[in-house]
């Protein structure tokens, strides 16, 4: 098996240049690539275009990169948890493209699956549809949306093997599987890195073909946004 293992976040992210387009997995703070984000923060890589469902919170996740003005453009569906984001957006410092969540997920999936465009009903008749081709199918109107790809896709999984096969846990799966397929270079960080042969092939969510680099992550904080109990 091809060995995709790199030492740590520093080696995995060593060649991410200023101005890169990144995909970052996660929904809210659930399933985000904490180690890779910390490394990008540490290195001060700037002028980034970040494709991620959310923008973190003020002091965690992508919010950290926003605080340091490392992000030039965000492509997201919901950014309500981040006051700094809203401030930069309303003042015009940050370029933002807001995309319906299902369209975002499908555009990323399409990018990884070699489908340059598709039609979806989401956003027809709204601001989202402005300037886009629309077409009627079976009496309903649809918008044409195009694929999304990234220079680097940063994903987080629960378990991974040295060949890059990944298994996610719980709802930390979210955008990670599609993003893993849509990066020119996909960097996977995992809570538990195991030798090939230890993961059941029937249980693999992301086949290793999509993953170029994998490393054993550390010090996961796994912050909870809304701790609700019974």
């Amino acid at each position: 098996m091809i060995n995709k293992v790199v030492q740590d976040a520093a080696s995995a992210c060593a060649d991410i240049p200023d101005g890169a387009t990144l995909m970052l997995g996660g929904f809210g703070l659930c399933g985000i690539p904490e180690n890779s984000i910390q490394e990008i923060l540490r290195k001060g890589i700037k002028d980034l275009t970040c494709i991620s469902n959310n923008a973190g919170v003020d002091d965690f996740g992508i919010g950290l990169l926003l605080q340091r003005r490392q992000v030039k453009k965000m492509i997201s569906s919901y950014v309500g948890e981040n006051a700094e984001f809203e401030r930069q957006l309303l003042s015009g410092e940050l370029e933002v493209e807001l995309i319906p969540q299902g369209t975002l997920a499908e555009r990323i999936r399409a990018g990884g699956a070699g489908i340059p465009a598709f039609f979806t009903p989401a956003g027809y008749g709204t601001e989202v549809g402005e300037g886009k081709e629309s077409r009627e199918f079976h009496g309903k109107m649809y918008l044409m949306e195009t694929w999304l790809k990234a220079d680097f896709a940063l994903v987080k999984a629960w378990k991974g093997d040295t060949a890059g096969n990944l298994i996610y846990k719980g709802t930390a799966r979210n955008f990670n599987p599609m993003m893993a397929t849509a990066g020119k270079i996909t960097i996977a960080e995992v809570e538990e890195l195991v030798p090939v042969g230890e993961l059941d092939p029937n249980m693999i969510h992301t086949p290793g073909i999509y993953v170029q680099r994998i490393f054993q992550g550390k010090d996961y904080e796994k912050r909870i946004e809304q701790r609700t109990t019974r």
Binding site: F27, C30, G102, T103, A105, E106, G170, I224, T228
Partner: peptide
Amino acid sequence: VDPDMINAGKQTVTTLPGSAIFSSAESFG
């Protein structure tokens, strides 16, 4: 409480017997 188990409102939740978990693309599919 499991940080890897949240709902769309980012609240911690649980599964039930018969629950299924999938990606965002599958969800909107």
